[in-house]
Computed example of a mutant assay.
Amino acid sequence: MTDAPLLDPIDDLLDVLDLTYEGPTTIEVASPTEATGDLGTYVGEVYTGRSQPQLYGRVFGGQVLAQCVMAAGRSVAAVDDGDGPRHIHSLHGYFLRPGDASKSIQFVVEGMRDGRSFSARRVHATQEGRILLSMITSFQEPAEGLDHQIPMPDVPRPEELRSDREILARIDHPYAQHTARSRAVDLRHVERLLLGPADPGPSEQSVWMRVERPLPDDHLLHAAILAYASDYTLLEPILRRHGIGWGDPRLRPASLDHSMWFHRPGRVDDWFLYSLSSPSAESGRGLGMGHMFGSDGTLLATVGQEGMVRLKG
């Protein structure tokens, strides 16, 4: 069991995303089967980052997503042909193994291509010779083109809702207390917070989110924290559809993959709405989909994740 972070939660998150550049390096990783003991190698620009302390010692998936975005973006920063910086517009990754929150993570960035308008990077997040997450990202320089978006749902404003932090702080349970103290992003559920059993309901929900402090004007940082926050509640519509709370002792959830498309720039230190749904669940897996809207209704990003949602016993 790991103690709560000593830093202020926002300072802690910013420190976790401030990766250390190690230079071009070769990393040895275990074979995919882990049975032969053979090692493979990856060559690329290597960055190192620490993990946020977690109550049960397992790395939060959103943290690794965000760190991969930072590493890939740092490697693209130098690519500028005079038409402006290239910003991330998509990522597609697979979670392969759980990580240990007490140990650092190395991010190996492979430069796949730098074209006239787009740059592609592959990132492997590794820990002690094992790949935790493998991701491909794409970046684009500013461009003109067709423009449309879906409307933001009509839901109560965040000022009308209670903070999840306030609700969790009143629950006498180690995980609720840890989450209330350590979460850097303020969440406010429009629907009832899904803690215990409930009647099966619609497979849709909305959550307001915000970092409660002004952050630097860094496009990459805001995109990384959007990716970080996207992993918080993405599987909840599956549980809500079946009346299952996060506290159900039978529940065995885990993220399997994660895709995200960044449509327009936005700030995470202003309120943004995460509108979520689940079109399907089967075979112990469930699919979560989400749209992130700025407080003015601008569509910032679209997210998709398939997760393992098994019930044991």
Score class of each variant (00 low, 15 high):
5 P>S: 01
6 L>G: 10
6 L>R: 02
6 L>C: 07
7 L>A: 14
8 D>K: 00
8 D>H: 09
10 I>H: 00
10 I>G: 06
12 D>N: 14
12 D>V: 00
13 L>C: 05
13 L>D: 06
13 L>A: 09
16 V>L: 04
16 V>I: 14
16 V>E: 01
17 L>H: 05
17 L>N: 03
18 D>I: 03
18 D>V: 05
18 D>N: 12
19 L>R: 05
19 L>A: 07
20 T>K: 10
20 T>N: 06
20 T>G: 05
21 Y>M: 07
21 Y>S: 15
21 Y>N: 10
24 P>L: 09
24 P>V: 04
25 T>P: 02
25 T>D: 13
26 T>V: 15
26 T>P: 04
29 V>D: 03
31 S>N: 13
31 S>M: 09
32 P>K: 04
32 P>T: 06
33 T>D: 15
33 T>R: 09
34 E>N: 06
34 E>K: 07
34 E>Y: 07
35 A>F: 14
35 A>I: 14
35 A>Q: 14
37 G>C: 04
41 T>Y: 08
41 T>C: 12
41 T>V: 12
42 Y>P: 00
43 V>H: 12
44 G>Q: 03
44 G>Y: 00
45 E>G: 08
45 E>I: 01
46 V>W: 04
46 V>S: 10
47 Y>E: 06
47 Y>N: 10
48 T>D: 08
48 T>C: 11
49 G>C: 03
49 G>K: 01
50 R>P: 01
51 S>T: 13
52 Q>S: 03
53 P>K: 08
54 Q>P: 03
54 Q>E: 08
55 L>V: 01
55 L>N: 00
56 Y>G: 09
56 Y>L: 15
56 Y>Q: 15
57 G>V: 12
57 G>K: 11
57 G>N: 13
59 V>H: 10
60 F>A: 05
60 F>T: 04
60 F>N: 08
60 F>W: 12
62 G>E: 03
63 Q>T: 04
63 Q>G: 08
63 Q>C: 06
64 V>F: 01
66 A>E: 02
67 Q>V: 15
67 Q>T: 15
67 Q>D: 04
67 Q>C: 03
68 C>A: 12
69 V>M: 15
69 V>D: 00
70 M>C: 09
71 A>P: 04
73 G>A: 11
74 R>A: 14
75 S>C: 11
76 V>G: 04
77 A>Q: 12
